[in-house]
């Protein structure tokens, strides 16, 4: 089911000045409920603008943003409430930490929501669990944590608001492979339990292949492609043509196909590739 969608949305920065720039150009796209949708595209393709339109930080120059079928920018709509329903984790969110303890920082959003003490406490526990942080860190100053831990606290701050739509802009940027896995894995576990809508912005096709269900590909403020990971990655040529990558394993499958091996090309994880090779050879080779 459609949870949040843009209908013919255009957004221009500094309209009417020499700096005017069209970031989104009449884009229509919907994000499904109970799915992780990956949002990909070049820097400057309008991804960041799009996510800020979804939670009302920006207002469209033209067109409408719908949440559960209702125009979010309608007159009298409480924008703060909208932001609690549509949680947005910015890139490098660790730079927004400010409280004295981890628990207090995570509680900032829930407190602004006006929740009672027990509920806030419960939310903190829940958020810490999903980002994989130990409860013993609650009383520690966030500024004493490592970079990766700070990132998790910041993400926990949004998870604790328990938003219906969770948007994350490059949540794993700059982290090492195991750090990426822990954060993205935690987000997936969270989504699978809450069955809410998650929108994940990332440049890493490998991460997208592993964690996203659907993909939305943007290009120069417009929608380029939309579909399941298999559908989108199967069109490797089209992605490459717009300057985007596909996972290395998908490229391998393409290369095999070109060499006359009858493999499927809609494969995007190593596990799938292994199964496919085993299917071709009729099982393992154990002597």
């Amino acid at each position: 089911m459609k949870k949040i969608e843009l209908d013919g949305v255009t957004y221009r920065y500094s309209p009417g000045t020499p700096f005017c720039k069209t970031a989104l150009d009449g884009i229509s796209v919907a994000f499904e409920e109970n799915k992780i949708t990956g949002l990909i595209g070049h820097t400057g393709c309008g991804k960041s603008t799009l996510v800020q339109l979804l939670n009302g930080l920006l207002t469209p120059t033209a067109g409408t943003v719908f949440l559960d079928g209702e125009d979010v920018n309608r007159k009298g709509n409480d924008m703060r409430k909208l932001r609690f329903r549509v949680g947005l984790v910015f890139q490098y969110p660790e730079y927004q930490l400010f409280e004295e303890t981890v628990a207090e920082d995570i509680a900032y959003g829930p407190k602004n929501m006006g929740l009672d003490k027990e509920e806030i406490e419960r939310r903190i526990e829940m958020a810490l669990h999903f980002v994989g942080l130990d409860g013993s860190l609650k009383k520690v100053s966030p500024f004493d944590l490592s970079g990766g831990q700070k990132r998790r606290v910041a993400i926990a701050g949004i998870l604790a608001m328990d938003p219906e739509v969770l948007i994350l802009d490059e949540p794993a940027a700059g982290l090492d492979p195991s750090g990426r896995e822990e954060i993205l894995g935690g987000i997936r576990a969270y989504q699978r339990e809450k069955k809410n809508t998650v929108i994940l912005v990332s440049h890493s096709m490998e991460d997208m292949a592993r964690y996203a269900d659907d993909l939305v590909v943007m290009r120069e403020g417009k929608l380029e492609m939309q579909g399941s990971c298999a559908e989108v990655f199967a069109q490797a040529e089209r992605l490459t043509a717009v300057g985007l990558d596909v996972p290395q394993i998908t490229r391998l499958m393409g290369a095999l196909k070109r060499r006359g091996v009858p493999v499927r090309t809609d494969i995007f994880t190593v596990e799938q590739a292994k199964e496919e090779i085993l299917r071709l050879t009729g099982g393992p080779r154990h002597a």
Partner: peptide, 16 residues
């Protein structure tokens, strides 16, 4: 630019 970013990030957490 940074101030802009932080303001937006805190607004997303409901700061008023």
């Amino acid at each position: 630019e940074e101030t802009d970013k932080i303001m937006n990030a805190q607004k997303a957490r409901g700061s008023d």
